[in-house]
Write a protein that binds this DNA or RNA. Sequence first.
RNA 1: GGAGGGGUGGCAGAGUGGUCUAAUGCGGCGGUCUUGAAAACCGCUGUGGGUGAAAGCCCACCGGGGGUUCGAAUCCCUCCCCCUCCGCCA
Length: 433
Amino acid sequence: MLDIKLLREKPDFVRERLATRNAGDESRVSEVLALDEQRRVALAEVEQLKAKRNAVSKEIGALMGQKKIAEADAKKAETRAIGDRITELDKIVAEAESARDTLLARIPNLPHGSVALGKDAADNPEIRVHGSRPDYAFKPLTHIELAEKLKLIDFARGAKLSGSGFLLYTGWGARLERALINFLLDLHTAEHGYREVAPPYIIGEHCMFGVGQFPKFKDQAYAVQEGLDGSTLGKLYLLPTAEAPVANIHREEILPGAQLPVRYVAYSPCFRAEAGAAGLGTRGMIRVHQFDKVELIKIVTPETGYDELEQLVTNAETVLKRLGLHYRVINLCTGDMGFSSSKTYDIEVWAPGQGSYLEVSSCSNCEDYQARRMNLRYKTEAGENRFPHILNGSGTALARLFVALVETHQQADGSVLIPEALRPYIGTDRISA
RNA sequence: GGAGGGGUGGCAGAGUGGUCUAAUGCGGCGGUCUUGAAAACCGCUGUGGGUGAAAGCCCACCGGGGGUUCGAAUCCCUCCCCCUCCGCCA
């Protein structure tokens, strides 16, 4: 949520920044300000009336105490009209405020000044590249072929259980998935200073609102209800990312400034309806309804927000380096950025069998946009309450990491060599048929 | 699923229609005293909003929302959450 005060004070700046997203949201600024003005006009009047009513009520109390009933009754009659007007104005204020906030909740965050201007993914600048595309003396297989030959994933039976877009990991495949999760959690807790948390996988609507998933992307979530009781529908959702519960851990709190920075790492499965998404229904692991992810979340002071973002990306990159994978880091341009983000780096890992890069991590600084939505603040040394910056990043997403790993480390004989760092976790140096 | 109890400031805890401007205690901050500290004493100590250059003034908030009333922490309705016991259950 943007700061209403920023809209009042610098509407042109807000319009200019929103316009860089190419989504047309800048036209909403005037609507929001009109409602805000309506609210304040009515509020000024109603508060004045309330002050008067409070004074008169106190007088009535005093008169009652002195048994001057007739005088008290006269005052009561006089005040009744004020009460009616207050009821009216209260309603106007509440409606204007609700309309204003509904609009405001649908306006995305402002891109940071350092973000490249651009229209879509084609305009995303490449920041750096690690390694290079490996050469193979043979034609590299796709992860689908490898997964079937090595019996890592049973695509047909996964679909039999839950439909297209759901995976059944089997044997070494299941073991590899579990090894990756443990490797990532250990890496980020032991070497990068994150605190491990394990959140609920079913979360309240307010968590989804807090991180900016709702109201705009409601159609992308799986809603759950209790049994067949439709009245419970709309309260709880399957998490689309651990960001949703973990970023909300401290919602509606005022953290002592000394407690920052807070750094959390969490493993969770992620559930996405992917309604209308390209690539859905394509065989394989690239786009599925359920995948595992290890997520990194930071709550930090605004002064350190962007340094922390750089560190966060580095932390995610370490995963790929340790696994011997070639990747590149790109910076999402203004037109390609997510709703809540001010600045986002994506990490794309090379998948030889696909012959393309796969997005395995998205690291964002949402500045105070989410903190404001969830009313999370921290107290400065001066005793002032401020909204912290909230950052999130995948560290990393698994199904695609799995793809890159098996495709990259496949051997001429059809086996997959396990990178050194992962061997203690999986308990083998090679997966063969 | 059934029965019962509860939700008040950082914490504990009073308050059941009118100086509640929420008692009191603890904790915290500042001060007096002291060589220093403790004790004692004094003062301050929540959140958001409106207005204003500022100081200030005003409004709202006792789990959320709504209602009754001139006036609600207090009465009524409704929802949420927590606790205890019973049943079922990994």
